[in-house]
């Protein structure tokens, strides 16, 4: 049965928000706690929901404007929910000179989305990265934590469908 969606991330946010509160409190006494707390929030929800920002501001006693300012400064924090798979195309120097731009174009075409957007089925978010330190295997794309190396524009279709399949398998297992 479908769950009643309570928060924009589609998760049961009550449990997660409670968990977040525990995390914030555990960091509270540490100097410079704001960023580690935001990192924990990002990995807990997959993005930083409004409810979380309010809670963080309240418990850490930091003005909302500062919390928001920090979130928007760093590219790892996202205010919008992301797809199940975050595809990041490396646009570092090594990847760039080995044709990363063509891979990006192929991905945009294949997914019909632009950088920073999420596909309508909420499966893929497309983003770019600035070097993942795997330059010896350039060009690189990362899908969540998986590295795909020596990628050619013609490989893109196969890579995407392998994740689509994975999703199907997961669904079957869940049933």
């Amino acid at each position: 049965m479908a769950k009643v969606e309570k928060c924009s991330c589609g998760n049961d946010d009550e449990g997660l928000l409670e968990r977040l509160e525990e995390i914030i409190i555990s960091f509270k006494e540490k100097p410079g706690a704001l960023i580690p707390v935001l990192q924990a929030t990002q990995s807990l929800f997959g993005f930083i929901p409004q409810e979380a920002i309010l809670k963080i501001s309240e418990i850490l006693n930091e003005p909302l404007s500062k919390v928001y300012g920090v979130i928007t400064f760093y590219s790892f924090f996202s205010l919008k929910p992301r797809g199940k798979y975050l595809i990041r195309v490396c646009l570092g120097t090594a990847c760039y000179v080995q044709g990363a731009n063509e891979i990006l174009t192929a991905l945009k075409q294949q997914l019909s989305i632009e950088i920073g957007e999420t596909s309508p089925d909420k499966l893929f978010t497309l983003d770019v990265g600035r070097c993942f330190g795997a330059c010896g295997l350039a060009p690189i794309i990362m899908v969540n934590d998986d590295v795909h190396q020596w990628v050619k524009p013609s490989d893109v279709k196969k890579i995407i469908s392998s994740y689509k399949k994975q999703k199907e398998v997961n669904k079957e297992e869940a049933i």
């Binding site: 090594a94 600035r130 330190g133 330059c135 010896g136």
Partner: peptide, 10 residues
């Protein structure tokens, strides 16, 4: 290690 194309420190 922000220099794109560097992975020594990594």
């Amino acid at each position: 290690e922000g220099d794109p194309g560097a992975f020594m420190d990594r």
